[in-house]
Nucleic acid binder design. Sequence first.
DNA 1: CCGGATGTTCACCT
DNA 2: GAGGTGAACATCCG
Length: 259
Amino acid sequence: MPEMLEVEAYRLAAEPVVGRTISTVSAPDQWYVKGGSTPSQLVEMLPGKRVIAVRRVGKLMLVDTDGPVIGLRYGMTGRILVDGGGPIDRLEYSSDRNDPAWDRFALSFEGGGSLVLRDPRRLGGIELDPDEDRLGPDAGVVGLAAFRKVLSGSSLALKARLLDQNKIAGLGNLLVDDMLYRAAVAPDRPVNTLAADEVARLHKAMRRTLAILGRRGGSHTGDLQPVRMRGGHCPKDGTELRRGDVGGRTTYWCPLHQT
DNA sequence: CCGGATGTTCACCT
DNA sequence: GAGGTGAACATCCG
């Protein structure tokens, strides 16, 4: 997905629909509607409801209404279109084509305008009243003390724990690799071997990574991104990067300075 | 043609 | 329960 930086861009783009009233709903894909709801329930329940706010926790976007909360997940290739336009035209690993056949969910509003979720690979989803409590604290706001709790009581690999949305919400594959690169910590370190100063370094690196990549324009603008390939070299010291599977995801890191 | 890509969930192991 | 693995979803790119 879009990781949290992209979802935040989507959230911002959706702000203009706050205050509008939903007129019609399109949910053509049953598989895309999660959490035990059915497309027909959405189509019945949402028209007439007014949008109160658009929020985000981690990678989950939440549209508050005076009825149910609408939860939007973007998977890896989901984009938002608001009143016909989108904040991100080109998405890494998605399609440059722009086929309305990939519209998995759409709201139309009284007086005009729309909010559309366009998702080629269909990895995202819609859920009414999603359980927000299952998510860990948002990576953008979590403080050092809470972050220490995230990284405690487990022998799991560091990267696997950082990707666990129930422990800390918002980080994806690219953001984690870049923050670990900056923090100079190896992704396969068991969480319970991290020293207190390393955890502090990770927290600082996470915040810097989010700020810098946010400014640059997204999760794909990390320092590791240009060399994220077989045979890539560390921008810091020129060492050939290691490539491996950590936490079930392809991972690149520098074997020299990330320890 | 094949493998792999910003993700999540579920089944099935140990 | 914790943790690992592989499959599933569908499309594009090298």
